[in-house]
Simulated scan of single mutants.
Amino acid sequence: MPDRPLRTLFDALRRNVEIGVLVLLALAILAVWALAELTDEVLEGATRNLDRDLLLALRVPGDLSDPLGPPWLEEMGRDFTALGGTGVIAGVTLLAAGFFLVRRSLGSMLYLLAATGGGIALSSIGKEVFDRPRPDLVPHGALVYTASFPSGHSMMAAVAYLTLGVLIARVLPERRQKAYVLTVAILLTLIVGVSRVYLGVHWPTDVAAGWLAGAGWAVACLLVARLLARRGHIEPEVCEA
């Protein structure tokens, strides 16, 4: 089967805890490095033209107040962007915490709440530190009242959905279940970020920074989860037989 080498690699990583930890650590470091490089480029103004071109590409030529597509698509963009809002994120996190509660896994539930809450707090701190102005080229399609970099909705979506995804996937028994949960988490994260640019409330690099920060946080949380599981503080990862 064509996916057998990939499955063999994943099985080897699960069996060899040390190699798995190193791989996760490398991914977290890579995300932090990419975020640092992007932040440096943004602060130097090197991404200004790219941000401008991508933002304007989503507008009707000659009418910057009108996003591409029919009116229902703009309304759908607002629906998608709400998936990264504080209320929705809090609700989804509590529902996921309930999943571990009914499994009688108090340690995993508390870790999930701490990991998600910590990432959201980090997002708020980042906005205060960089204080980048919002795009002023086009009218905003959604209410905004905070700084632009990194995109709070994009980062909160990445932090919440990816962190929830990896923590839930690790206790599911089948590969298909794990793949489904992770795919949904990634799609939700991407949809929220794209909607922020489409509505004109964020520069594309704001969204990219939010994705990188959130992905790095999710990988770090998975790394810590594996270490806590080895000490018996949270549920061990379930592998398909």
Rank of each mutant, 00 (worst) to 15 (best):
D11E: 13
A157E: 00
L68T: 09
D206Y: 02
G214W: 02
A169V: 04
I120L: 15
L164F: 08
N16V: 10
H153T: 07
L228Y: 10
P150R: 01
S123Y: 10
G152P: 06
P236R: 00
A34H: 07
Q177V: 11
A157Y: 04
I19R: 09
E128N: 13
D40K: 10
V17I: 07
E128P: 03
V166P: 10
E75L: 12
L110F: 11
G69S: 01
G45H: 06
S108E: 01
L95Q: 06
M109G: 09
T39H: 04
L113P: 07
L110K: 06
L113N: 07
Y161A: 02
P70Y: 03
I168W: 01
P5M: 01
V129T: 12
E41M: 12
P61C: 04
P173Q: 03
S123A: 15
I234C: 04
G200D: 00
G216H: 00
T39Y: 04
D3F: 14
A36K: 11
A114K: 04
T146E: 13
V238R: 09
R226H: 14
T189I: 12
P61T: 02
A158V: 06
G107I: 07
I29C: 07
R176S: 15
C239M: 14
P5R: 01
V166D: 03
A12T: 10
D79E: 15
A82D: 10
N49H: 12
S124W: 15
G84L: 08
P139I: 00
G87A: 15
R231G: 06
R14I: 03
A36R: 13
L162N: 02
L9M: 08
G117S: 04
G216Y: 02
A158F: 07
D11V: 03
V23H: 05
A82T: 15
E75S: 13
A34E: 11
K178I: 05
S105A: 15
I29Y: 08
D66S: 13
V207P: 00
V32W: 13
L190C: 14
T93N: 05
P61K: 01
I19Y: 14
S65Y: 00
T81D: 05
L212N: 02
V144S: 08
